[in-house]
Amino acid sequence: MIDEVEETSGNEAEDGRPFLPNHLVEELGVVFLVTGVILVLASLGRVEALRMPHIFFAGTLGMMRGVAPWFATIVLMVLVIFLVALPFLDKSEEPHPLKRKLFVLIILAVIAMWIAFTIMGF
């Protein structure tokens, strides 16, 4: 059974601001700002972006060291499956996070767990 797709025009903002030139100019401002920040960070002498053990891998390392490699494999697989399944599990039309307590709790638990394992992995 295919769910009915909600009607969206893609340009739903009838009372919004014009894309040309207002929004485009502001978007370009953001582009220059981000590029500028990265260029300035890169010019701060011979400083590596982040030192090893790299913060993005530390969570996985923490799970491997703290529990077992197979645990890290399971957690990563379940996490990806959960993210893929999320729109089909959370069928409510309510966008506000406080009215989707279960899913918000799951995500908060995952973030808390990841921070804990990241600390362990360092």
Partner: peptide
């Protein structure tokens, strides 16, 4: 160095973007 910093910025912003999409329920129908 720019490559390295841009990679870090990209990872951080894509994670925050995912969280924002989740927080605003933008993954729904």
């Amino acid at each position: 160095s720019v490559h390295s910093w841009a990679a870090n910025v990209m990872v951080i912003t894509i994670l925050l973007h995912t969280l924002r999409v989740f927080a605003t329920g933008s993954y729904k129908n």
